[in-house]
Design a protein around this nucleic acid. Structure first.
Length: 569
RNA sequence: CGGGAUGUAGCUCAGUAUGGUGGAGCACAGCGUUCGGGACGCUGGGGCCGCUGGUUCAAGUCCAGUCAUCCCGACCA
């Protein structure tokens, strides 16, 4: 490609709409432009990177026998009613009506459509396993789009769906996809981790997220340095050490705590550390009102709670419910004397002489022990923190931030049951297909690469997904000899299968250097009058500080060597 | 949805306290000089001051509303 002919609108200054680094750089380097909040155009340069990611994905998916299709972006309400998600999905699902007043939605994901396809077309165990995938636009009406294409409303996603005859087959498909994802993100040049995750909106039984490690990530990863356990915050299990605690029953007493509701207030008022308090949180759930106990300095992990009790819906109780259930106002709830089921975090089991709400206005109860009230049981219900014990090996948890670029799920029978996706087995018996689904945010992957690779001059793109692999840069376009050599080098590189661009613009050198750095092209070949007099040209790697001079006859060979090295990484 | 901020040239921003002929830098076009890290000079084009309404002789500036964008948060007793 010739720079002079390509549409690359770069910016010298930071656009004020962008706060996050990858977003700023993508705008400055002419990768994307915003049309509306969370809705972006991909310009030629950004699209080249996007396509490179897509192609890596395609190759690895195809290698595992997955087959590419494209499903509709607009989907009928009826399918979503069948799966039960028309009501459940919430406001992220953008619903529309056509001229006949038929209700439709813009696809945020495609379980319904693919399940419908397979149940119609696949009749026999002979046709399974089957993995179908697509790379296609999704729309999710995000509560708050942000960080450019990192969290946008309209975005490109690779979504794959596996159909197997049984659980064992589904397990194999899952492992295949796990392997494919590892390869994909390795090839993209990422520093990443596969972590255990909650299954969330999609539903299902088990899941991994693929996290690119970056400080700007929105997700928190809890990992154990000893055994390698890694999970996202929602999922992360916390271990404990069983020990005897000497406790006395019935020694508790009530104290006046006028107006002290919050943990910090009560803690300060009574002169007791927050970890000597127990919070009692009341929830309304689809299985009735419940109470949850957690140590004062910790937070409840609602995802764990929901999973443990297999709740469909839960929310914090309103003040009215709290008064009815506990007899006291908000801020003074405690476990004693309550008739609703109580579930406690394990920490509570090992506490002694602690403080709880008194279930009456301006009253807290001190010197309470677990013998003084009744709970359904003790479970792992709190949000993990660095320093917590690893549930697997007893090591210590630490935390890092990550960008979720991929997510894989075992769906089990969730959709095949709801939508009757069945096949006939060897005995001619009808059975439900066991499903899995596997997503990669393609645009987000490009953004993540930039978050992970950049400096004050711009992007440092990984070789595999940089918009160009090599930039041939004649310093002075009006110097005929430089231009001639540049053309020769450029064409030879193209002939060797290198994705090269020649900066043939009649711009001053500074402009060309700055643009080349901004865009993050991994290898730059600089051809200038001064070096040329001695038969030399310059090769500079974007991720290294210094450049080197090589004889002009050797340029191609040297560039190919570097390209090889990058590819093998 | 709650809180905060911002809307003035393609971009970054000044001008708004105290109403009175809309500015700068960059970008763009022409000419000239330059040519190894975002050059310089001269000339020029470019504006519904987000939008609607109000106050006023007069509004970018004051008032009300509205829209858009960005940031933070979304119930943790």
């Amino acid at each position: 490609m010739r720079y002079s002919k390509m549409f690359i609108p770069t910016m010298k200054e930071d656009p004020k709409e962008a706060e996050v680094l990858s977003h700023r750089l993508m705008l400055r380097a002419g990768f994307t432009r915003k049309l509306a909040s969370g809705v972006y155009t991909w310009l030629p340069l950004g699209l080249k990177s996007l396509k490179k990611v897509e192609n890596i994905i395609r190759e690895e998916m195809n290698r595992k026998g997955a087959q590419e299709i494209i499903m509709p972006f607009v989907q009928p309400k009826e399918l979503w009613e069948e799966s039960g998600r028309w009501d459940k999905y919430g406001k992220e699902l953008l619903r529309i009506r056509d001229r006949n007043d038929r209700e439709l939605c813009l696809g945020p994901t495609h379980e319904e459509v693919v399940t419908d396809l397979v149940r119609r077309e696949v009749k026999s165990y002979r046709e399974l396993p089957l993995i179908l995938y697509q790379i296609q636009t999704k729309f999710r009406d995000e509560i708050r789009p942000r960080f450019g294409v990192m969290r946008s409303r309209e975005f490109s996603m690779k979504d794959a769906y596996s159909f197997d005859v049984d659980e064992a087959g589904a397990e194999k498909s899952y492992i295949d996809m796990y392997d494919a994802y590892m390869k994909i993100f390795e090839r993209c040049g990422f520093n990443f981790r596969a972590v255990e995750a909650d299954t969330g909106q999609i539903g299902g039984s088990f899941s991994h997220e693929f996290m690119v490690l970056a400080d700007t990530g929105e997700d928190i990863i809890i990992s154990c340095g000893s055994c390698g356990y890694a999970a996202n915050l929602e999922r992360a299990e916390v271990g404990f050490i069983d020990r005897d605690v000497s406790r006395t029953k019935g020694q508790f007493k009530n104290l006046e705590t006028p107006g002290q509701r919050k943990i910090e207030e009560v803690s300060r008022f009574l002169g007791v550390a927050p970890d000597k308090l127990v919070k009692t949180i009341i929830y309304n759930t689809d299985k009735g009102t419940i109470g949850v106990l957690v140590k004062g300095d910790r937070e409840i992990n609602e995802v764990k709670l929901r999973n443990m009790l297999t709740l469909d819906a839960m929310e914090l109780a309103d003040e009215e419910t709290i008064e009815k259930v506990t007899g006291g106002p908000l801020g003074f709830s405690g476990p004693m004397g309550l008739t609703i089921p109580l579930y406690a975090d394990r920490d509570v089991m090992f506490m002694e002489d602690f403080v709880v709400g008194g279930n009456a206005r301006d009253v807290h109860t001190v010197d309470v022990n677990i013998e003084d009230f009744k709970v359904e049981g003790y479970y792992d219900l709190k949000i993990a923190k660095p320093g917590d014990l690893c549930a697997r090996c007893g090591g210590t948890h630490s935390s890092t931030k990550g960008i979720e670029v991929g997510h894989i799920f075992k769906l089990g029978l969730k959709y095949s049951r709801a939508m009757n996706c069945a096949y006939l087995d060897k005995e001619g018996k009808e059975k439900l297909a066991v499903m899995g689904c596997y997503g990669i945010g393609v645009g987000r992957t490009v953004a993540a690469a930039i978050e992970q690779g950049h400096d004050e001059n711009g992007m440092i793109m990984p070789f595999a997904i940089a918009p160009f692999e090599v930039c041939v840069l004649p310093v002075n376009s009006s110097h005929a000899e430089s231009m001639e050599l540049a053309e020769v080098v450029y064409k030879e590189l193209l002939g060797k299968g290198i994705d090269a661009i020649i900066d043939d613009r009649p711009e001053r050198p500074g402009v060309k250097f700055k643009d080349c750095d901004l865009i993050g092209i991994p290898i730059r070949v600089t051809i200038g009058e001064r070096n040329l007099k001695e038969g030399l040209v310059e090769i500079k790697l974007r991720n290294e500080k210094d450049s080197q001079k090589v004889r002009k006859e050797e340029v191609i060979e040297r560039v190919l060597n570097y390209a090889d090295k990058f590819k093998r990484r």
